[in-house]
Structure formats: structure tokens, C-alpha cells
Design a protein around this nucleic acid. Sequence first.
DNA 1: TTGAAAGCGCTAACAC
DNA 2: GTGTTAGCGCTTTCAA
Lengths: 346, 346
Amino acid sequence: MKKLTLEEVAKLAGVSRATVSRVVNNPERVSLKYRERVLKVIKETGYQPNQAARILASQRSNIIGLIISSRADLIFTDPYFAVLITGISRACNAHNYTLALFVFHTQEEQEQVYQRALGTGLLDGLIVTADKITDPLIPQIAAREIPAVYVGRPFDKTNTSFVNVDNVAGAYMAASHLVRLGYQRIATITGPMSSTTSIDRHEGYIKALTERAHAVEDDLIVCGDFTRDSGYTAMRQLLPHKPDAVFVATDTMALGAIQAIHEANLTIPGDIAIVGFDDLPSAIIADPPLTTIRQPVNQNGRLAVEMLIDLLETGPDPPHHTILPTELIIRATCGAIKFNSGNYLS
Amino acid sequence: MKKLTLEEVAKLAGVSRATVSRVVNNPERVSLKYRERVLKVIKETGYQPNQAARILASQRSNIIGLIISSRADLIFTDPYFAVLITGISRACNAHNYTLALFVFHTQEEQEQVYQRALGTGLLDGLIVTADKITDPLIPQIAAREIPAVYVGRPFDKTNTSFVNVDNVAGAYMAASHLVRLGYQRIATITGPMSSTTSIDRHEGYIKALTERAHAVEDDLIVCGDFTRDSGYTAMRQLLPHKPDAVFVATDTMALGAIQAIHEANLTIPGDIAIVGFDDLPSAIIADPPLTTIRQPVNQNGRLAVEMLIDLLETGPDPPHHTILPTELIIRATCGAIKFNSGNYLS
DNA sequence: TTGAAAGCGCTAACAC
DNA sequence: GTGTTAGCGCTTTCAA
């Protein structure tokens, strides 16, 4: 099947190139007679417009790039990203956009991947997961004036559009929940402190404790790196300090923490209560099912796409921000059940 | 920062457009003197070639599409895809290709997504995960003569290039292992029988049993749909028939099966032994750690990319095929350990 | 080595 | 409503 051009279709249909173009793009602007004639030729010949030519002429591609700026092993291991990508992908489909995926797996790849993603003339815009405080990507994107939406709060909010969840409030909710349940030694496992997400969740934890006149003990705060393994390691570090409850900054790390607790022959929540953050699918099948802070990851992905499309249509100013709320999901790891009679929840 | 064109860079450097183009694409073909002069201008102005124009003129985009033709909820839930995408992504980076992701989440989206993926002039080629026996995608891709590599054996192998693992041999290995360990009532939980992968793994199971003069009982064969939940349900269906071992066609389903066994207050492998298939990261953290058949998913992804690039360079004939071997990974769920003294493994 | 010029296939402003 | 025409910005022969 030979590849036809607009020109040839036009010739076959006995009309001009422009008419064929209109039939393809704005059928309603062509008389029924010509429209049908052209459509017939298109159907018969299997004509397909060349997308590169289209992009070049129209200066619009309907392609958006997703740059995931994190350790690549995490990306496809932590279900968080899976859920996020699902949301983004769905929204792209809904708005007839194609999604290009930019991930780097080693430091050497980084620059090269960035160059492809930041190149001119192909992508309409970018969605970027960059909550690192020193990410070199943000200034580059700004300098090239590429329409972009960030997922997660960038460290420097200036002139950037982003979607985020209220991490401070979510963490505050988690820690407050533990405080109200009567726990005394409430620890936390944080993410890396180079991430604004980690910073915000840590802040919420501190806020809840101090507000309730709980002492903040340095020994009860341990850093992880968002991996399950780091949750495991962090929990083992915590155990000698006898916490009776832990707020773990992500569900994925919480799963590792749970394993460490089990291995120490302690019970959950009897000996140590746990509250996670994210409410990923794995939270519900954890053993015991994980009490956690639900954040609307999927919806965040969708909103990022819609915000970007809006930016594309209305220009970059003013920058858009959306902060979604979180929700406490009580399951079995926090021990709320044992306080069930007349507790503060009712 | 205004967007420059080749033309303007040429003017600034006092050379022709062609020379600038050469500096960008084949620097070695330009005299040192001009090359440096042009590079200086490029650096100073931040010139970036327009990718759409480049694609149009060169008829090559260095973009490949990945079409995932499966239930979308699965795609980002089953770690199998995560691992596969990782392999593909890495290989794309290594060869300087950009990856476009095509996934549909509802049936209505399917046709539209396909049209974007199969459109002309943008993608150099496709990688397709299509092991469904009736997938309409394969004939469409063939008709349009789009270079493509399939991951997983297509039902009709004619003229298609693909990478696959030896599913029959892997399943045979799994079931034989259980037979040799002395289990008598060896069940299987298969994937949907519309998938060649499921068909092949089922075949390997049957082959192992019949070769060893084990009866194949219909009641001991239950279909799942690759989800964890379906593994759970299938196992519950199996329990009344008192299997003493189960070969589960995927690790993800095996996790569900394990949960069902636990809930029935049976032990693994004491009451029921399990062998999975895939060796995903979750296999090792399962409780107990899962004996399984390792398939090189990551490598499969890489090979698919490399095969496609090869196809792009050398043309579609003859079709390429790669069948990778699998490997039995013995952990705790098969009970091999209790036979440890002088068993067949030694 | 370098430059001139002819496309690549389409969109969109404009004129009819 | 339709056709004409001028680009979109680059690659790539072909001569020089």
C-alpha cells in the first residue's frame, strides 16, 4: 500500500489540497457533496495525513512529554508512579494527546534525555515530577519557555504551574490521629529531605506533635529514600528507641517497616502502630491492612494534563496551582479499633 | 529567548544553511574553521533545531511507540509491565530513541488510541504487547507495513518479528519440579485462554503431568485473568478439590493464591505448595518467598527495542524471532527444602 | 568542503 | 464554499 499525500488525494477527488485538508480537520466547513467525495477517496485509498508535516505546519503536535525526575529504579517499582502515569495516560487519551515518556536510569543518561525532552518543535508541553530542591530541570524549562506543569510542589514556586496535595495537612492528620489515640512515643520515617514532599510531610508531623505538647525526639525521626527497603532499614533503626507508633511518609516504605516489625516479633498495632501516606493499592492488601493518608494520585495526574492543556490554550500567565486535599483512611495498623468505644472519631 | 531557525544561525555565522545542518548532524564533514564558528553561534544563541521539520525532511523521528494491548488497570498494577517498560525505556535511552506510550483504558478509547499510534510520519516503529489471539491490531499494523516487534508470541506468527520467552519449557519445569517433589494432586491456575502466554504455560503444565503419568484433572485447572484478585478467587475454587500443590501461571496471581491459602488456615508449603511464574520483585518479598520461574522480562524489553532498530535499518525481511530461556528459582513455597537431603536437585 | 535549491507534506491566510 | 499560495524549518542531493 503506497503512501499517498494530500495532493494526490485532492487530484483523485478532483478538488484542491485545501479542501482535502478541511475535510480532514474541519469537515463541517466543506459542502456535503465535496466532503463525501473526498471521504470516499480517503476510505478507498487508506490515506493518512503525515503527522510530522502536520506538526510543522500547524506548530502543534498534541504530544506532551512526561519527565520523571527520580531514581529510575523507583519509578517502576513504586506503585505511586504507576498510579500517576495511569491518571496522566487516561487524561491524555480523553483529550486526544499522545504521551511521550522521559525517564533516565543513570546519571549519564540524564543530560541526553533532557535534551530530547526539551527539544523544540515536537512536544506541546511537559509534565514534570520534580520535587527535588536542586533539580536543574526547572530553570532549563523556564529559560526555554516551555509550557510545563509540575507534579508536586517545586522548591521555587516562582512562575511555575503545579498540582500538588496538601502534604503538610495530610501528615498533620496522620500524626494527630496517633496522638489522639494516646500513643506517647510517636516516631516518623521520612523521605529524603531533598524532596519538598518529604519536607512538607515532616513539617506536618512536627506540627501535630508540638501542638499537642509532645516532645520531638531526634531519635524518633529517621530518613528513608522512598524505597521499601529503606523503610525496613529505618524501622530497624527505630526499634531500639521503643516507639509505640510510627508515621511513615509513604505506603511503600511502610510495607518495609511492617516487615521489620514482624521480624522483631512485635505486633501491629499492639506493640507499634503505623500510619502510612498515599493509599496505594498495596495498602489494602498489607498485613494488617494499612491505616494511611489517601492522596488522589490518579486525579493529580489527570489535573496535571488538564492544567497543561489549559496553559497551552490560554498562555502561561498567571501560573496555575491546585492543591488537593488528603483523607485519613483508618484500617488496622493504627489501633483505632481498640479505642472504638466512644473514641474521638465518633 | 526568541526561537532561531537554521537560516538565521547560518546568517550569523556567515555560512550557508547546509553547513549549519552539517555541523549539527555530521560535524566531521565540516572544516574546523567553519565548524567552530557555527558552534559558537549555536552556543551563544541557544539554537535548537526544530524536531518536526527534521522528522519531515529526514523521514526519521527516532521515536518508537509502545502499544500495550491489555486491560489498562492491569498494566500499571501488575509489576510485569513495570519491569518490561523499564527495560524498553533503558534501551531507548541507550540508542537515543524517544518512547511514546499508547495505552487504552476503555474499549471506546481503543480505536482512537490505535489511530494515533498507527498514524503515518511520526513513529519509526512500534513495540506491541499483544498475545491475544484475536487482537485486531496485528493485521492493521501488517497492512500499513509499520515496522513492529511483538513482545510475546502472536497467535499468527506469519511475517511478524517477536521476542518471547519459552513459556512451555518454563511451565514444564515448574510442574515437573512439583512432580519430582512427590506431590500428587498438582493443580494449576492459568491466565485467560485467549492469551498465547497462558496457552503455552498451560501446555507445559499438561506436558509435565502426562509425561510423568499423572492424571490431568479438570477440577484442578482453574482460569484466572492475570490479576491478583483472580488468583485469590481461583485458589478458593481450587481448595475444595484438595490440591497439594499449585502451579500458578503468574507471580501476581500467586500472591492472591497465597492469601487465599492463608485465609483457609493452611500452610505453605506444608499443606499446599506453590510455584509461580515471572520472578517479579514481589516474589522475593512474598510470605513465604515464592518459588517461581524466572523470565528475563527486562532483557526482553531491551531486545525488543534492539530488534526493532535492526528492522528499521535492514528492512522487515526476514522476520526476527528471539526466544529466551527461563530458569527455576527455588525459594520457600515449593517445599523443596524438606526434601533437602539427597533430593533430585543435588 | 561548501552552497544552491529542491523538496518533505501539510496548514492557514487570503482571495475569489 | 473553494482554490491559490505562501510558508513551517529542516535534510539532502547536486554542482561548484
